[in-house]
């Protein structure tokens, strides 16, 4: 049966996840907006505090979306109930991807948009936009990797490791960006410079995220047990 034919069930599962997690996600968006307000006030200490808070909020939202929609479902044994509904493993996979696009994607897009708005409309240098989007790109990739591991691997230990490791790598990633003159150079200026290096990194992040998610679907549809 084509997943398109079972679209109402996929929609139902996405709505279920949204129902379950919307309150917590609203709290993350609220914290993100506070972080943006701190960044926007453009004093050095509020800028650094706001940036740090924004990163924490993004990482927490990514981990929360994965752990509540997948790991908790497995741990609390509600997965059997969900899979007993008229769905195939592919429907479940598509629902989880779509559900995460909503539960993580909504705060993510709000915060990306908010960050761009703050950078462009306040005294914060506009050149910071490219650098910020690359950091957001890393969080997106880390979320895709963690989501894939959560779908493919049942071990709680490996899942925790994948989440922490991929998110913590944002630190060396930021340091690496600082070592690339074509990215670090324009950060303090008013010009938004999309260098070849920046485009290459962002494209790699987006393509890798899509590839990881696609490969996970292939793995998931070959699983032999769903409870």
């Amino acid at each position: 049966m084509s997943p398109l034919a079972n679209l109402p069930m996929i929609r139902l599962l996405v709505a279920k996840d949204w129902d379950l997690f919307q309150r917590q996600l609203a709290a993350y968006v609220g914290a993100g907006i506070l972080a943006l307000a701190l960044i926007g006030s453009a004093k050095p200490w509020t800028f650094y505090l706001g940036s740090l808070l924004l990163l924490v909020v993004l990482v927490a939202a990514a981990c929360f979306a994965i752990s509540t929609s997948l790991l908790t479902e497995r741990k609390e044994r509600t997965l059997g109930f969900v899979m007993s509904l008229p769905v195939t493993p592919l429907d479940f996979y598509l629902a989880k991807i779509a559900g995460n696009l909503v539960t993580f994607g909504v705060p993510f897009v709000v915060l990306v948009g908010g960050t761009a708005g703050v950078i462009l409309s306040t005294p914060v240098p506009d050149g910071l936009l490219v650098w910020s989007l690359l950091v957001f790109g890393h969080v997106l990739l880390a979320h895709a990797v963690s989501l894939s591991v959560a779908m493919a691997v049942e071990s709680e230990g490996w899942n925790t490791f994948a989440m922490i490791a991929s998110m913590v790598l944002v630190n060396p990633f930021i340091m690496m960006l600082g070592q690339i003159p074509a990215i670090a150079g324009p950060m303090r200026g008013e010009a938004i410079v999309w260098s070849a290096e920046a485009i290459a990194i962002l494209s790699t992040q987006v393509l890798l995220s899509a590839a990881v998610i696609g490969f996970t679907g292939w793995v998931h549809c070959r699983k032999r047990a769903f409870y």
């Binding site: 049966m1 079972n6 069930m9 129902d19 379950l20 609390e76 044994r77 509600t78 059997g80 109930f81 007993s84 509904l85 008229p86 769905v87 195939t88 429907d91 409870y227």
Partner: peptide, 25 residues
């Protein structure tokens, strides 16, 4: 099964001892 599991599951009720519902709901 599993080829037509959606059609089959629409007509099945399955309750198992280790199946849980969402505690927060």
């Amino acid at each position: 099964m599993p080829a037509q599991q959606v059609q089959a599951k629409r007509e099945i009720g399955l309750a198992s001892e280790d199946m849980r519902l969402y505690g927060s709901q």
